[in-house]
Design a protein around this nucleic acid. Sequence first.
DNA 1: CGGAGTCTGTCGCCTGGATTACAATCAACC
DNA 2: GGTTGATTGTAATCCAGGCGACAGACTCCG
Lengths: 223, 223
Amino acid sequence: MVATTDFLGKLDEKTRAALMAQTTRYRLGKGDFVYCIGDAGDTVHFLLSGRIKTCKFTQDGREVILWFGFPGEVFGLIESPHHKGRMVSVETCEPCEIAKISSGSFRDFLGSRPEVSQLLVQIVASRLGMLANRLVYFAADDAETRIAKLLVNLEARYHSSGGGSEQPIGLTHQEIADLTGVQRQTATRILGRLAKCGALSMRYRRISIRDHDLLSRFTASHR
Amino acid sequence: MVATTDFLGKLDEKTRAALMAQTTRYRLGKGDFVYCIGDAGDTVHFLLSGRIKTCKFTQDGREVILWFGFPGEVFGLIESPHHKGRMVSVETCEPCEIAKISSGSFRDFLGSRPEVSQLLVQIVASRLGMLANRLVYFAADDAETRIAKLLVNLEARYHSSGGGSEQPIGLTHQEIADLTGVQRQTATRILGRLAKCGALSMRYRRISIRDHDLLSRFTASHR
DNA sequence: CGGAGTCTGTCGCCTGGATTACAATCAACC
DNA sequence: GGTTGATTGTAATCCAGGCGACAGACTCCG
């Protein structure tokens, strides 16, 4: 099953080809920014390979990650009608291949394809829902629960292939901390706890879910 | 200036009349639910008078408020294309007058008015932005800062008339707590602190901003 | 192969705010 | 005008997790 957020994966072959024909492709290295908050850019982007993170920054410079993007995802969508510039920054987590299109051309492309517009509305709605859920988690759950939920969630989105693959979740402790709003040290401590009890397996920089059921037992709030 | 989220206020007279002509109106008392998470409803709503809150619930039954709606606001928009039912609950804070329309009729209405569709996209985008900001606040700010930001924000949205009006912010401590993810007692303590130093004036159930500049000094993170 | 840079693991201290437990106010409806 | 229920005020206790401070582990590159 294709993940909810995988836009390109949900287009049929012909439509995707038509879209791709109008884009220009480029590559970015690890840690590069696709764009930053406030940038004027008026383009829509599609992630072809690699992983990106959409983030904002706090006054004191800490990064808060809003969501991760995996191959197939669209981004830079909602800012186009705005004239206030980008609302978020997008940073690559690893070398990425990206396709972009001006929002004008994209609008034209959508003009004759209402079902694609419909799909986009659903994607935006699902992002709104995800953010709303995360807000609830922040308000209600302790750090351990938030991290467990994140891991389960990422697994569901990223390893859609499923089947106890035990692929590593390629995130650093810092990124997990930025996603869950805790200190990096706290993330390390909690991950260690989860590994010790057998829910995760961890070899330096290689976190993977060993026991899915056990882990999901931690997603029930302990407050 | 009309608040960003005031949909009806941004339509011109004629368009608004055309829309309203197709809606059915009804009234709800204080504390009633317009709809609840999971409901099947396929309607779009417009708040004519009163105040509503959009919320979700935690596993242990605590309410988390996503945003407040003031007169003129649309809601129930994004759920329509979904077949999973409502993603949130909407509850009135006081007696309300509401107009509703089936999402089919609304789609027809939009069909011939692309500029209104455009406006709706902007409204959804701005809500996405608001949620994203709140997420950052949760991740970065302490309780006092979050509450101060909330008050400043509400003032900006609600009392758009401006001019040191000192109208009370009609929220209970519980609602402020639900909006900022703190305990009710903590909200009370912090509000008391802000009142003692002169930023707010408080008489039972009547919180208003006395010194706007002083209050906004508390919105700079203290972490 | 050695040095620099980035990640990870671990400690101890200390504070913000959850939690528990009441008491006092106010509104509203008999 | 008194009883009921919602809202507010306050105070004592306790602990999750923020913060600072390092010491290892691993990677990458010259």
